[in-house]
Each structure stands twice: as structure tokens, then as C-alpha cells.
């Protein structure tokens, strides 16, 4: 960090914000002390870099030819007034994210509200205490959805090209839903299984999301038959009803028909002797192989 550079950026920003009309590049060079003593090439380079840095900090700099300005209305936080209950809710929002980065970013947002005179009140005992799991690259995904741009990423070992439609948090997990250009169909991906940083590709407005985004992928998938020891495995079974056909259930077990979701084999294994995969055959094979692996590993 260079104090000189921060000083120059601040002075540039204050000058543009205070100016009544856009300011020419030459005038900026004269007025800002930090640009004095630079030759033409160095000034150009430094000025370009400074504009990028201010924009990275979120400052909306307008340019028109070689004139620059900052619209106060676009720059400033609009006036918002909150009730005491809303301030308590904002205070509680600070503790929702379990992800360090998102928690810090939320804190930054709350500091801005404090700087504008609101006092989020974290001290009140809140009746609501939700927790959100880390959503990796949340802002990039949101941008892709809002700007309707393609996102590329790796999922496991495969490369994916997705037109993202919607982010979804369900049962503590984050998903992105969209049109998978490799498969030519709507698909859902878990954000925590995306193995490389996703990146935006191509122009904005590249596609249109359907009016109704399918969020219930379970129904379109295969069904898995799983026997679960009565009273156990609520996390796996959820609100599913008992299967009409109870064939294959060991004593004291009940058969459920569940959507064959991503990771169901792992969830069945995690229940140990309290769950048995019954069908389809390749799921049973997968579960048995995984159990044999764990059984053998310690021998």
C-alpha cells in the first residue's frame, strides 16, 4: 500500500465529485499534485491505472472523450430510513453468513449504512438465527444471471458452459440452475463442487431465461429405492412418503422412493447400517463399492 497513491486517488475522486461540469484530462493533470513531475507517458499510464483502481473500489466515473466526471446522484447512497425493528434485522444480518468473505462484505455494507446515519443494532436478542453456507463466487454468478452472460467453469473434471438463470439455496446448499450448453438441457450444479474459478464469457444479453425456472429437478430424475431403519435418516428421507411397495425392506426398515439426487450414494453410506440401497442396480453397486472401500481401508 502506498500512502501517496491513496492520497492521489482520493484527491482525484474529490475533485471529480466537487466539479460542476466534466473536467478535461489536461486540467486534472494540472490540479492534482500527485501528477506533477510526470512526463507524458508516465502521466497517461498512471492516470489510466488510477481510473481502473477507483472503478475497482466501486466509484462510477463517467468519461466523454477526454472529459471525466462523477455524478453525485450515482455516487451517493440514497437516503433510506429504517425502523428500530429493521435496524435490529440489519444487525442480525451481520451474523448470517458462515463464510468469512461474505461475512466481511456484509459488514462493509452495514458500515456504509452506519456512515449514512443508520445504526444497525446487533445487541438485541434476535428471534431468528439463520446460517448461510459459503456461496463461492456469488457475485460473479449473480452478474452472469442479471447480465445474461455465459459462465464457464470446471465441475469435477469436466468443463461446462452454462447460461445461468437462477441461484438457489436449498437445505443449506447453494446451486446454480441454467441451460447447460454441453448437454443442451437445463441442469443444476452445486456451487461447492465447482472446481475452478468460474468466469464470464461473451456478450451481455446472450440468452433469455425462461419465465418459470425449473427448480425442482428431482421430479425429472430417476428414482432411487432406499430402505431406512424406522425413525432414522430424516436428513436423507426428508418429507418423502413411504413407498407403496415395501418389498426388500429388512425387519424394522421402511422403504422410501427418493429422487436420485447428486450425492445420494454418499448420503446412504453416511447412514451406515441404518440405510440400504435397493434400486436402481447401479446405485446399489456404487454404495456397496464405497462401503467395501471404507470397510477395507482400516484392515
Amino acid at each position: 500500500m502506498s500512502a501517496k497513491k491513496t492520497e492521489r486517488l482520493m484527491n482525484l475522486l474529490v475533485m471529480l465529485l466537487a466539479a460542476r461540469a466534466p473536467v478535461t484530462r489536461e486540467r486534472i493533470r494540472q490540479m492534482i499534485e500527485g501528477y506533477h513531475g510526470l512526463d507524458d507517458i508516465n502521466f497517461e499510464r498512471t492516470f489510466e491505472r488510477d481510473k481502473l483502481d477507483l472503478r475497482a473500489a466501486g466509484v462510477p466515473i463517467d468519461s466523454d472523450g477526454d472529459r471525466y466526471g462523477i455524478h453525485r446522484a450515482a455516487y451517493e447512497l440514497p437516503p433510506i430510513s429504517f425502523t428500530p425493528e429493521e435496524l435490529a434485522a440489519l444487525g442480525a444480518a451481520a451474523t448470517v453468513w458462515r463464510d468469512q468473505v461474505a461475512a466481511d462484505t456484509t459488514r462493509q455494507a452495514l458500515v456504509t449504512l452506519q456512515a449514512a446515519g443508520a445504526e444497525p443494532d446487533a445487541s438485541r436478542l434476535e428471534a431468528f438465527c439463520p446460517r448461510l453456507e459459503p456461496a463461492n463466487h456469488l457475485e460473479l454468478w449473480r452478474q452472469g444471471i442479471v447480465e445474461r452472460r455465459e459462465v464457464r467453469f470446471s465441475y469435477g473434471t469436466q468443463h461446462r458452459r452454462l447460461q445461468p438463470w437462477r441461484l438457489l439455496n436449498r437445505r443449506g446448499r447453494w446451486y446454480v440452475i441454467g441451460h447447460d450448453l454441453e448437454r443442451g438441457a437445463a441442469r443444476r450444479f452445486r456451487l461447492d463442487k465447482v472446481s475452478t474459478a468460474p468466469r464470464l464469457v461473451g456478450e451481455a444479453g446472450a440468452f433469455t431465461a425462461p419465465e418459470v425456472v425449473p427448480t425442482d429437478f428431482e421430479t425429472s430424475h430417476e428414482t432411487a429405492r432406499v430402505a431406512v431403519r424406522t425413525g432414522r435418516g430424516r436428513d436423507l428421507v426428508g418429507s418423502a412418503m413411504l413407498a407403496a411397495d415395501q418389498t426388500g425392506a429388512p425387519d424394522g426398515f421402511e422403504v422410501f422412493e427418493l429422487p436420485r439426487s447428486f450425492g445420494i450414494a454418499g448420503a446412504i453410506c453416511a447412514l451406515g447400517a441404518d440405510a440400504v440401497a435397493l434400486a436402481p442396480a447401479d446405485l446399489v453397486t456404487e454404495v456397496v463399492a464405497q462401503l467395501e472401500n471404507v470397510a477395507g481401508a482400516a484392515r
Binding site: 455516487y75 447512497l77 440514497p78 455494507a109 456469488l138
Partner: peptide, 8 residues
């Protein structure tokens, strides 16, 4: 203050 950044 400056308005909230998109990620904030």
C-alpha cells in the same frame, strides 16, 4: 457515503 458496491 458511496452507495453499496454490487457485492455488498
Amino acid at each position: 457515503p458511496m452507495t453499496l458496491r454490487a457485492d455488498e
